[in-house]
């Protein structure tokens, strides 16, 4: 590999790290919602299909799952999430009070 090729390789490696860690191309949740509802223009919709389903962005996939969950009847919310909500509230509240001491 030439020196210039190696420099480009190193630069793109760092760009990749920063791109992933800072979620550079992750769209706003409102755009993800519009995409799921089919109200985005074809180009943008096609891009989001790539970003979420082909590139498998885990953050955007998690947002989409959450949006789908919210769209359902509250009664359908899984018991697992409800349990998690309660245990999180309790542990965080206890921790906050300990931190304040």
């Amino acid at each position: 590999m030439s020196g210039a090729e190696e420099r480009i390789d190193q630069m793109t490696f760092t760009l990749g790290q920063v791109w992933r860690e800072m979620r550079v191309s992750c769209p706003h949740p409102d755009l993800l919602l519009a995409w799921k509802e089919g109200s985005l223009e074809p180009g943008a919709s096609d891009y989001l299909e790539f970003h979420v389903n082909e590139a498998e962005c885990p953050y955007c996939q998690a947002v989409v799952e959450d949006l789908e969950r919210r769209g359902k009847d509250a009664a359908e919310e899984s018991a697992l999430l409800e349990e998690l909500r309660e245990s999180l509230l309790s542990s965080t509240r206890t921790f906050l009070r300990d931190q304040k001491k």
Partner: peptide
């Protein structure tokens, strides 16, 4: 990078964005 991606969104260069995400973000 965010400014650059925003430029691609605004100019609706989604194909280019996909290619660059594949090359730069995903190696």
């Amino acid at each position: 990078l965010k400014v650059f991606v925003q430029e691609l969104w605004e100019s609706e260069e989604f194909q280019k964005l996909k290619v660059l995400e594949f090359l730069l973000a995903l190696g």
